[in-house]
């Protein structure tokens, strides 16, 4: 059983959480302008990396809030838990958050 640290509720069993797929997939600015291929790419195509992966999680058995996590898909270890912008992207912009 994994212990996942909810940013609101602290460490809880993984069974209280649901997985929400890849994080930071932006909604297209103008969906009507997309071709069917581009739209399907937005809807269905996700990364499947071996190693660190930014993901969405929801604590549906607790506070019911969404948050992001960077998890190692090899070891299942949660490296970072955060809300909002990816710490990697934020770091690249020189933001200390």
């Amino acid at each position: 059983m994994l212990l996942i640290t909810c940013p609101n509720c602290g460490p809880r069993d993984e069974t209280e959480f649901h997985y929400g797929g890849q994080a930071h997939v932006p909604y297209p600015e103008d969906p009507h302008a997309l071709s069917d291929a581009e739209w399907s790419r937005y809807l269905f195509y996700r990364e499947n990396p071996k190693g660190l992966f930014a993901e969405r999680w929801v604590h549906n058995g607790g506070c019911r809030k969404w948050f992001n996590a960077i998890r190692d898909t090899v070891s299942y270890e949660f490296k970072t838990i955060y809300t909002g912008e990816s710490p990697l992207e934020a770091g690249a912009k020189g933001d200390s958050q």
Binding site: C9, R12, D13, T15, E16, G61, G62, C63
Partner: peptide
């Protein structure tokens, strides 16, 4: 008080 799961029941 906490929100949690008791034997799979919220």
């Amino acid at each position: 008080a906490i929100v949690t799961v008791l034997d799979h029941v919220p």
